[in-house]
């Protein structure tokens, strides 16, 4: 690994994934800096999920190169999985385990020691203000709390990068903003955040965003620069201009 690449959390070069003659991801190239909040946007069917699966070490690319936290997506999938966190809209929490059991379970899966788990879970419960809920089943928690817990669990093992796949779908506007507070705090602590969303105001909270259309990365820049480039003051309009030409939304 070259020295200049050390502060890059993710590097993609001409990354491609084909299913038969269909190019789900078509030669995408980009870099994500360490500690950056990177928004990964795109129309439905643009290839976001496929690209994200490769970057999480769950699927092999057809061609091109990519490293995540310095590990190769072809040869080092297991190391990638150990060094990232992942949270999707469908929370990966166990409804029939308690709050504390969920935290301990994830700590165990990621190989933390007993004392580490004990110390960090006490700290986490305190930070989230969940003292009264530690013994409650997660299934009985309100959606907003589940979501905050799911995020906390995803970064419990202090990964280098956390992948968030539409993390705020369906929650109320206040909880949605509290969730972004947590994202900012995670980024400030040095965790790189890779996030997808359909809320364009949330795109504005990212340091940089990329927009995928038909398997390609059509634009990548800071929200302010993108708005300037498309002569508009709304991210909605930027997205609309980029994505309306998509052929694949029809499929």
């Amino acid at each position: 690994m070259q020295k200049t690449m050390e502060n890059k959390a993710i590097i993609c070069r001409e990354l491609t994934k084909e299913f038969g003659d269909f190019k789900a991801v078509d030669r995408i190239s980009f870099e994500v800096n360490q500690g950056e909040i990177f928004g990964f946007l795109g129309a439905n069917g643009a290839g976001k999920t496929t690209a994200m699966r490769i970057l999480c070490g769950l699927s092999y690319p057809s061609s091109g190169e990519a490293t995540v936290a310095g590990f190769d997506v072809y040869k080092q999938q297991e190391q990638i999985k150990k060094n990232i966190g992942y949270m999707s809209q469908k929370f990966s929490l166990y409804d029939n385990l308690t709050t504390l059991e969920n935290i301990e379970f994830y700590g165990g899966v990621y190989g933390l020691s007993r004392p580490e788990i004990k110390e960090r879970s006490a700290q986490l419960v305190h930070t989230l203000g969940l003292e009264k809920e530690v013994k409650k089943l997660v299934g009985d928690l309100p959606l907003g709390w589940k979501q905050k817990l799911a995020f906390s669990v995803a970064i419990f093992h202090r990964p280098k990068i956390v992948f968030l796949d539409e993390p705020t779908g369906g929650v109320d506007p206040i909880t949605r903003r509290q969730f972004w507070d947590m994202i900012y705090e995670a980024a400030a602590s040095g965790i790189t955040v890779f996030v997808t969303t359909h809320y364009m105001d949330e795109a504005e909270y990212c340091h940089r965003i990329s927009v995928m259309v038909d398997g390609r990365v059509e634009a990548i820049d800071s929200p302010a620069n993108l708005k300037a480039r498309f002569h508009t003051d709304s991210m909605d309009e930027v997205f609309y201009q980029l994505a309306r030409g998509a052929k694949r939304t029809a499929d």
Binding site: A43, N44, E166, G169, H198, F239, Y240, A243
Partner: peptide, 10 residues
């Protein structure tokens, strides 16, 4: 329109 992108929503 939940989970649908900006273009399809419009």
């Amino acid at each position: 329109t939940t989970g649908v992108d900006v273009v399809s929503r419009k």
